[in-house]
Nucleic acid binder design. Structure first.
Length: 305
DNA sequence: AAGAATACCAACCGCTTCTTC
DNA sequence: AGAAGAAGCGGTTGGTATTCT
């Protein structure tokens, strides 16, 4: 027998929150700060369970939340992140600080899932899509399994590439988070792509090692998310810019002028912000690889040094 | 105009993970 | 070390709005 649900008690209200309840909750949190949710219903007199209070705050009342109207940029990020991380909505939401996991999840389920599926069907499988046997003779379940495998392979490859004993990569490949999801058409091709992906990621270690040897002197630890704030030409952003736009590794098909515009907007050629790409990279490395890097300049690895 | 179908999203449920003792 | 409670997370539900027939 499991623990009884916290909201089963009698007298606990369910359903939509009223503006009055919202005001009570917000006033209480303004005074005491978020947390200790257990105490909220008793101290406020709200006939809600602690869980409901927390959810209402985090998903709706918390300041800084942007609601509705997802931009193209946000859509793109969600699609990429979902392909990379799966349905880990909280992790995805961490890249979009103004959006809640619930919001992203809802948006994915109602809009993006269909959109992505359409694109996949059109570009890779023809109009018969996933029904029955596809053109490749693969059932949907198998396809999903393979997708997961490819993502795992890609992540593994990235991790391996970031360990100091490995070397030699094409950085722009890493900045193509669409790996694994939208680009395969046959098992052979998918394997080849995974292999190509693995070998092409090897350069990251090199790039990072070069960067770490001369860490940005002006890196600003106080910038949001602890990211490097304009550390001369050796910071993450500069590396992304160099590899994508100046070193000829951009394969987005974008014109040079569009590239320049994206660069000015702080994005790579796929429209992904440098800050996000940087965070990916740091997450993929677990914040600890390459082992002898001095990540402390961007406030990530202080305790390891 | 009205009923049915579909879309949307806030909120709930239950499982997992974290924290405290 | 492990039990218990708190908090976090993702899947699902249900009410409302909108669109279709």
């Amino acid at each position: 027998m499991g623990r009884p649900p916290c909201c089963d008690k009698e007298g606990v209200k369910k359903g939509p929150w009223t503006p009055e309840e919202d005001i009570v909750l917000v006033s209480y949190i303004q005074e005491h700060g978020p947390g200790n949710w257990r105490a909220v219903p008793t101290n406020t007199g709200l006939l809600r369970c602690s869980k409901s209070c927390r959810l209402r705050w985090t998903n709706y009342l918390r300041p800084g939340i942007k609601r509705g109207n997802f931009t193209d940029q946000e859509e793109k990020m969600i699609i990429h992140l979902q392909a990379l991380l799966g349905n880990r909505w909280a992790a995805i939401a961490s890249y979009l600080p103004q959006r809640t996991d619930n919001d992203i999840k809802n948006y994915w389920n109602t809009h993006l899932k269909k959109k992505v599926r359409k694109v996949q069907v059109r570009s890779n499988y023809g109009d018969d899509g996933f029904s029955g046997t596809s053109k490749q003779g693969m059932a949907r379940g198998q396809w999903e399994k393979r997708l997961q495998t490819d993502i795992r392979m890609a992540r593994q490859a990235l991790w391996e590439a970031l360990t100091p004993q490995n070397s030699t990569p094409n950085f722009s490949e890493i900045l193509k988070p669409s790996f694994g999801c939208f680009s395969y058409s046959s098992t052979k091709q998918s394997q080849a792509q995974a292999t190509a992906y693995a070998s092409s990621t090897e350069n990251i270690a090199k790039l990072l090692t070069g960067w770490m040897k001369n860490p940005p002197k002006t890196a600003d630890k106080s910038t949001p998310n602890g990211k490097c704030g304009g550390g001369g030409d050796q910071d993450f952003e500069s590396i992304f810019r160099y590899e994508c736009f100046e070193n000829g590794n951009c394969n987005s098909g974008m014109s040079q002028s569009d590239n320049n515009q994206a660069m000015e907007d702080g994005m790579n050629c796929e429209g992904l912000p440098f800050s996000v790409l940087e965070k990916w990279l740091l997450e993929e490395t677990g914040g600890v690889q390459p082992r002898d890097c001095e990540f402390n300049d961007i406030g990530i690895l202080d305790e390891k040094i």
